[in-house]
Design a protein around this nucleic acid. Structure first.
Lengths: 129, 129
DNA sequence: GTGGACGTTCCAGCGCAGGGGAAGGTCAAG
DNA sequence: CTTGACCTTCCCCTGCGCTGGAACGTCCAC
């Protein structure tokens, strides 16, 4: 399987595939006589896993950790479990932060809606912020 | 006021102040005879505005827009109002996205908690994702 | 033998908001 | 007279996940 075919099959681009190889996510494939990358179907399964990880919001570095564990012959279940737990915590924190920010902005927006613009003070640039 | 003093007074760094000047957020101040930047107290008020904008989650580019309007002698109220409204929409979208992602990750985490790790299939790297 | 669609490498840049550090000038205190 | 704390400009680096482009090789059909 050549790189272009794999790109189509995996829904990525050849650029991304070379980048993933460089980043250690995709093992360097065999080369054909002319130097072209020659992928096995395993690469497609791996890319599918990468895609699922990305969908779950994991970073490439985290996905690589999991792949490295699997490649070392160990089942990455435990690591994945811990990773997902930490990720949940991250998400909760991000959501809480964004909601707090949303409250702040909603307040600002509300005062900007109900206030009298003629009372603006030029020294503070804009009193709505 | 020298740059170091302004940095302390505004709670930023000299690096940031030069960066803001470069980015057009802070007008280039007068220079003393030896070439040092010499800030007026107005710079502090402006930095305070920048800080408030940042706290509200605005980008430096957005803050700059507001400052540019104010510097043009116009009250930026209307622009700020629209900006905040759009920002609210962005935040709502981000929060919704993160919550959807959280649901997905929570599901994955749950199956990783309740599943039997011995059933792992090596071809899919990890069935929890 | 030529065109076009593939493939290869390497280098650069995006957007965001600065940070690091070099190489040098300036000023006050000891 | 020197030390140390400031200041100046300059350019590169960070993280993240790619993307674009140049310059070149290869293969297949016509």
């Amino acid at each position: 399987m050549r790189i272009g075919e794999l790109a189509v099959a995996s829904g990525t681009t050849t650029k991304t595939l070379r980048f993933y190889e460089e980043a250690g996510l995709l093992p360097a494939p065999e080369r054909t006589a002319n130097g072209y990358r020659d992928y096995t179907p395993a690469a497609l399964a791996r890319l599918d896993f990468v895609r699922r990880g990305r969908t779950a919001g994991l970073t490439l570095a985290q996905i690589r950790e999991i792949l490295d564990i699997r490649d070392a012959g160990v089942a990455p279940c435990q690591h994945v479990h811990a990773l997902l737990e930490a990720h949940l915590g991250d998400l909760d924190r991000q959501i809480a932060d964004l909601q707090a920010l949303r409250h702040t902005v909603a307040h600002l927006h509300h005062s900007a809606t109900t206030s009298d613009p003629t009372k603006c003070d030029t020294t503070t640039v804009c009193r709505y912020l």
